[in-house]
C-alpha cells in the first residue's frame, strides 16, 4: 500500500489558543478515514492544513511524498479538497466551472472534456451540466463541490462535512460516491454523524480539543461496543 498522506506532529495556534496539538496520522490508497470530533475540536483546521490553505505552526505534511510546505505545487497536484463551504462561482454553469477547475489543476487540454464529463457523471450532474450553479439546490451545489475536487483525478480527496444539509437520499448517494472513490483513491472526510463513519470508512480518527484521542481501523474496534459508545466514553474521559 502506498502512503498518500503522512502528517507528523501537526500543531496550529490561533494566537495563544492551540487549535490542533501534535496530531499525526497517515493515509494509504484504498483507505477511507473518517474524521470525528465535537464542534471546535480542530477538524476543519487540520483539513485546511492538509490542503495547504493554512500553514501549520509546526509539523510536517507529506502528500504523495511531497512536502506541503517546501513543494506546495507538487503536493497540491495530488489533492482534491472540498471545504465546508464548497468554493463555487455561482455565476458560472456547472460545465464552465468544472472546466476551469480542470484547467487550474493542469489537466491537459485534450482530456478536459472527458474529465469534466466523468466527474459530472460520477456526481450525478449530467442533467444540470448547463445550468448556472447559483440556481441549483444546495444538494446539487454540494455535488458540484465534490465534482470540483475529483475532476483532475487526484490521489487524495479531502472532504469537510460533505453530507451537511442534504436530504436522506442525497446523503446515501454521497456516501456511495465516497465508498466508490475510496477504492482507487485515499479519502479523508470529517463528519458529525457516527453511523456514517461506521458504514463508509475503513479507519476512524477522533480528535478532541486539538489532540488525537483515537486512531484505529474500524474492524479493530471492540465488536461489543458501538462507535457511539466509544465516542461518548472518550469525550467523557476528557
Amino acid at each position: 500500500m502506498t502512503v498518500l498522506i503522512s502528517a507528523k506532529q501537526l500543531t496550529r495556534y490561533y494566537g495563544k489558543h492551540c487549535a490542533v496539538n501534535k496530531v499525526s496520522f497517515s493515509l494509504a490508497r484504498g483507505q477511507i478515514l473518517g474524521f470525528l470530533g465535537t464542534n471546535g475540536a480542530g477538524k476543519t483546521t487540520t483539513l485546511q492544513m492538509l490542503c495547504g490553505n493554512l500553514a501549520p505552526s509546526s509539523g510536517e505534511i507529506l502528500i504523495n511524498g511531497f512536502d506541503m510546505l517546501t513543494q506546495p505545487k507538487l503536493a497540491k497536484r495530488s489533492l482534491g479538497y472540498v471545504p465546508d463551504t464548497p468554493p463555487l462561482y455561482k455565476e458560472l454553469s456547472v460545465d464552465e466551472f468544472l472546466r476551469y477547475c480542470a484547467q487550474l489543476h493542469g489537466v491537459p487540454k485534450a482530456d478536459i472534456t472527458a474529465a469534466v464529463q466523468l466527474a459530472e457523471q460520477r456526481c450525478g450532474l449530467s442533467e444540470v451540466a448547463n445550468r448556472l450553479i447559483g440556481v441549483l439546490s444546495k444538494g446539487f451545489q454540494q455535488r458540484v463541490g465534490i465534482a470540483q475536487a475529483i475532476v483532475h483525478n487526484p490521489d487524495v480527496i479531502v472532504l469537510d462535512e460533505p453530507t451537511v444539509g442534504l436530504d436522506p437520499l442525497q446523503i446515501i448517494e454521497i456516501r456511495r460516491l465516497i465508498r466508490e472513490l475510496g477504492q482507487e483513491h485515499g479519502v479523508i472526510f470529517s463528519t458529525h454523524i457516527l453511523s456514517e463513519v461506521q458504514e463508509v470508512c475503513t479507519d476512524v480518527m477522533i480528535i478532541q480539543q486539538g489532540a488525537c484521542v483515537l486512531n484505529a481501523r474500524i474492524d479493530e474496534l471492540p465488536a461489543e461496543k458501538s462507535l457511539e459508545t466509544i465516542f461518548i466514553d472518550l469525550m467523557q474521559a476528557q
Binding site: 490542503c51 495547504g52 490553505n53 506546495p72 505545487k73 507538487l74 497540491k76 479538497y81 477547475c101
Partner: peptide, 14 residues
C-alpha cells in the same frame, strides 16, 4: 468573502 479563494489556494498554483 464567498469562500471561493480556497479553490485557488488548494490548486497547484503559486
Amino acid at each position: 468573502r464567498n469562500k471561493t479563494l480556497s479553490l485557488l489556494l488548494s490548486a497547484p498554483l503559486s
